[in-house]
């Protein structure tokens, strides 16, 4: 299952490290990554592959928990919905 993970918050040291470390622990493979500062906010988007048989709800809860820990907003959604909205 491919997912889009977005991480938005106030910029500080170690956000990418924290998020990608947790993804590695969860065996989530990063396929594409984009990071920028948009209107002063740290904004990162990742296209990632969840491991076979992964529990989506548990992964989501885990990443959102990490977001709370490090003070950023983490969202995760299956990738198809973004294609559905924008691609013919």
């Amino acid at each position: 299952m491919q997912v889009i993970i977005t991480v938005i918050g106030t910029d500080k040291v170690g956000i990418i490290a924290a998020v990608t470390t947790r993804l590695a622990e969860l065996q989530v493979n990063i396929l594409d990554v984009s990071q920028t500062i948009m209107q002063g906010a740290f904004t990162m988007m990742l296209l990632a592959q969840l491991p076979e048989g992964a529990d989506f709800a548990a992964t989501k809860a885990d990443l959102q928990g990490l977001g709370v820990e490090i003070g950023v907003d983490v969202k995760i959604a299956r990738q198809e919905i973004f294609d559905a909205m924008h691609k013919l």
Binding site: T6, D32, M45, K75, I81, F82, H86
Partner: peptide, 15 residues
């Protein structure tokens, strides 16, 4: 990965 489109979708939903 179309970051602008992803951002637009998320903004539509969350804001």
């Amino acid at each position: 990965m179309e970051t602008q489109q992803i951002k637009e979708t998320i903004q539509m939903i969350s804001e």
